[in-house]
Design a binder for these strands. Structure first.
Lengths: 239, 239
DNA sequence: AATAACAACCTGTCATACAGGTTTTGAGGG
DNA sequence: CCCTCAAAACCTGTATGACAGGTTGTTATT
């Protein structure tokens, strides 16, 4: 019952790619917003005149990139912005050694010097509090590296959120995965307890500057924080 | 012949997600590099004890994110770093109005002020030449907006490449799609021919600073370039 | 009118089939 | 022994049909 190749006169880079484009195009042309439902697989199958297999692989691909949400029984919906795909790309680059950890840190430093300045300017009181709370929890748990790490990551993500630019949040969060796999090394390199507490103090300084609304100072503290972190990683022999 | 739910005692967020994890895990644990082949679908099917459908959707998802390359007859291979997934995420965010064009420009400005400084410090002669060439081609074709745009985009990507940090390249390139859909608006807003030529001059100034190896100057010109671009977009009423 | 059972629809997964690519193998000739 | 080339084995791309289980809307019963 199928005769796909004659329907479209264009090149054939695979039916699935075509289907993916059709779906994103649908989102675009219908002006769909997060939460809005997409056509069912059956409907898409009819519209594109391809098998359900193809349509399904297309939906699944978009779902893997977190552009749409899928769940059994329900139709797929447009997804809220999510870091899923980005972190996978970054992690893929790192694990296949196409990206070094240092390069990631350079990017983070560049971006977070900006997010912290924006946060100082635009943070709400609640956001300032959330940032300060993460710093506080780092100190309170400073004997449990794993816990410190999670609050450290939350700290940076909270700052990105306070920048009120979702693209920054997206990128910063995308790096969290890599951070998780290297953070402990940096922590151990700060051999003395004093060094570790100094690092936590650095976070508190940043939080203070944000609370005070001083972007210059906040950026400076952030820069120092990153310089020390990179130094710790280099000392630990991370290429 | 199937009895999947009893094999693993963990939660079931879908067999496909599990398969995706298994594949990425395979890349990690085997230390695969770009170009290295992955197991065939049949092999994966046996290893995970799921149907080929599931394995295929997993492969296809990774392929959509450009983490692996697939083509008919050949086994999938580990892919070189590619911007595919990232640009889709960004474009999704913009088309669903979760990200504004201005926010994208803020991020670009932040990142490109760094890439341009790094490029000034680390560019090879060939890279400096490529950057300068793009600027030259902008001037030579300044009556054809589409062509100017393509060289403009190539210009920024060439600078990112000259930063010798693939993460910057990745991010800058990811924004190119959005740039393509708004660039012309900014161009038209520069009503006079003089304004347009001044904008091209800005690119040449950047290229010169990179050639001279002056990161400070290069960053300054880049900042001015972005400030003017954003102003042009705002004048055009882009929120 | 509230509720409970049911029907219709939807996604998740499996099995099978076959059309074309690609790689491997092996047989035959030099 | 090596080269060549064709067949075999393997692989991905796509289609079809089937069924389990989740979700939603409808209808019948109370």
């Amino acid at each position: 019952m199928q005769e796909q190749t004659e329907t479209s006169g264009e090149a054939n880079p695979g039916l699935v790619s075509t289907a993916i484009q059709a779906i994103t195009q649908h989102i675009r042309s219908q002006g769909l917003a997060p939460g809005d439902p997409l056509p069912s697989e059956a409907a898409m199958t009819r519209q594109l005149n391809v098998s359900r297999t193809v349509v399904r692989e297309a939906f699944r691909s978009l779902s893997a990139m977190r552009l749409i949400d899928m769940s059994a029984g329900r139709r797929a919906t447009v997804a809220k912005l999510d870091t899923g795909a980005m972190s996978m790309v970054i992690e893929h680059g790192v694990t296949t050694q196409q990206i070094s950890v240092q390069q990631v840190y350079d990017v983070r430093r560049t971006i977070e010097m900006r997010t912290v300045a924006l946060a100082a300017l635009r943070r709400t009181d609640g956001e300032a509090e959330a940032i300060a709370r993460s710093a506080r929890l780092m100190r309170e748990n400073y004997r449990s590296p794993e816990i410190v790490m999670e609050h450290d990551i939350a700290f940076h993500e909270a700052i990105a959120a306070a920048s009120h630019n979702p693209v920054f949040s997206l990128i910063v969060t995308a790096f969290s995965g890599v951070t998780r796999s290297t953070w402990v090394i940096g922590w151990r390199t700060r051999s003395s307890e004093e060094d570790q507490l100094k690092m936590i103090q650095g976070h508190e300084d940043i939080a203070d500057a944000i609370l005070k609304g001083d972007p210059r100072l906040a950026a400076e503290h952030m820069a120092q924080h990153f310089d020390k972190s990179v130094k710790a990683l280099i000392d630990a022999g991370i290429a």
